[in-house]
Computed example of a mutant assay.
Amino acid sequence: MKTLLALTILLFANVSAHAASSDWVKVDGAKMRLIGMPSLDNGPYRAGLQIELEPGWKTYWRNPGASGLPPQLDFSASKNVNETQLKFPAPHFFAEDSSIGYKNSVTFPISVTPTMRGFPMALDVNGIVGICSDICIPTQVQLSLQVGKSAISQMDVAMALNKSQALLPTQPEQGFAIEDVMLQGEEKPALVVMARVPIQAEDVRLFVEGPQSWYLDRAELISRKGTLVRFSVDVSEAKSREDILAADLVFTLATQRKAIEQTMKAKAAQ
């Protein structure tokens, strides 16, 4: 076990020695930068948009809720980059404005596949990020990360990327999954979602996404007994019950330690 731990630390230290970062850019309510480092398994390059928020400020998830602005980022100006994929850690719900997102700090992981491996890359991002306090400010983002032999040791970059990766939703597993989704009610239809979470799980929360044109209200935790939790989601703004039953619904179930993502259809209550 000690040999395995030592080898893991050695690999981690070696990768962090090739970490890279752009300069911090200060904006109203936050500062942000691009960070990156190679993967441990020779997979896609691991990058991230790191945002440090001032007290009272927040930024948003891909589905920002009733208010807010999701990140809208363009990587087309990058060099020696074939594909990028922006990912989202599990978010939180903010009751003061019914929005969904992040406070304090967040790193959005970016998976980067180079066109030609072994050659320097330039990751350029342009776009808009919502940074909000009492009002939401669409903040212009223009950042560039040069990836090559000039990278230096930055343990903080490696730690931020590893933390953000750990907060990404994974596949459902035994004892941590959505088990059933029922559509109940006629005049005010609602989804009743039953799920299993670990017995020691804290800060259990659920986010539901439907078709892009839908707005789904907050998932309310209505009961918890042991590992079984039940949520209710108001879907009265959907056009019809048929639309609700036909939709592929994306569920993000999160706790203080981990999260899963699962796609299911609702069933009509008997």
Rank of each mutant, 00 (worst) to 15 (best):
F231A: 06
D234C: 08
A266M: 05
K258T: 14
V235C: 05
M264T: 01
Q262T: 05
S232E: 15
S232R: 14
L221D: 06
G226R: 11
D248G: 06
K258R: 15
L245C: 00
A268V: 11
K265Q: 15
R230E: 07
A247S: 14
L221P: 08
V250Y: 06
L253V: 12
A259I: 10
Q270Y: 11
Q270I: 14
R241Q: 14
S223H: 09
R218E: 09
A238S: 08
R224I: 10
A269K: 11
A238K: 11
L253P: 04
R218A: 09
K225W: 06
T255A: 07
D234R: 08
I244R: 00
R241S: 13
I222C: 10
D234Y: 09
A266G: 00
T255G: 05
R241D: 04
E261M: 13
R257K: 14
A247D: 05
I222N: 06
E261Q: 15
R224G: 05
I244K: 03
T227N: 14
A266S: 06
D217T: 10
L216Q: 02
K267Y: 06
L221S: 11
R224T: 08
Q262F: 12
E237V: 08
R241P: 09
L228C: 04
S232N: 14
M264V: 05
K239Q: 13
E242Y: 04
V250C: 09
S213W: 09
I260N: 11
E237Y: 10
R257E: 10
T255S: 11
S223Y: 13
F251L: 04
L221I: 05
V235H: 02
I222F: 10
A259D: 07
A266V: 03
K265F: 01
K267V: 07
K267L: 08
